[in-house]
């Protein structure tokens, strides 16, 4: 049976109804901000890192069902991962966990991964400047 191209999977709706790790981390070690309100989706991802492991993560998303659920599932996936492990995640990993998204919504999973990469980049930048300060 052909899947309705505009229907969300059960998994997507689960995360949309009860998003995990929603909110802001005030003293985050890395923040990734992506998207554009004009396009209708913006994602902010906050990570706490200890001994190279992501110990806490939170998100704030302005966007559609797919954007919110992509953010939520991503936070579940990366909690407990090392920075290197998290960095290797791709949109396909997110899509797999969500049991797929309609073609017009694929960019939401891309956005989540971009937010993660930016948060990691931000974390590294902060760490480097910290190191320099300590020298």
């Amino acid at each position: 049976m052909k899947m309705d191209a505009f229907r969300y999977s059960k998994k997507v709706l689960e995360h949309f109804r009860n998003p995990h790790n929603m909110g802001e981390i005030k003293d985050a070690d890395g923040i990734g901000r992506v998207g554009n309100p004009v396009c209708g989706d913006v994602m902010y991802l906050y990570i706490k890192v200890k001994d190279n492991v992501i110990t806490d993560v939170k998100f704030q998303t302005f966007g559609c069902v797919a954007a919110i659920s992509s953010s939520s599932i991503l936070t579940d996936m990366i909690k407990g991962m090392t920075i290197e492990e998290a960095e290797k995640l791709t949109k396909d990993d997110v899509l797999k966990k969500l049991d797929g998204l309609a073609p017009v919504k694929l960019h939401c999973s891309v956005l989540a991964v971009e937010a993660l990469r930016k948060a990691i980049g931000d974390y590294r930048k902060r760490k480097n400047s910290e190191r320099q300060r300590n020298c």
């Binding site: 998003p19 901000r33 992506v34 998207g35 309100p37 913006v42 998303t61 930016k118 931000d122």
Partner: peptide
């Protein structure tokens, strides 16, 4: 709005960071 990064304006919109 609780999920959204924007609460009272789009002023904190900043994706450069």
């Amino acid at each position: 709005r609780q999920i959204s990064p924007f609460k009272h304006s789009f002023d904190n919109y900043d994706v450069k960071g």
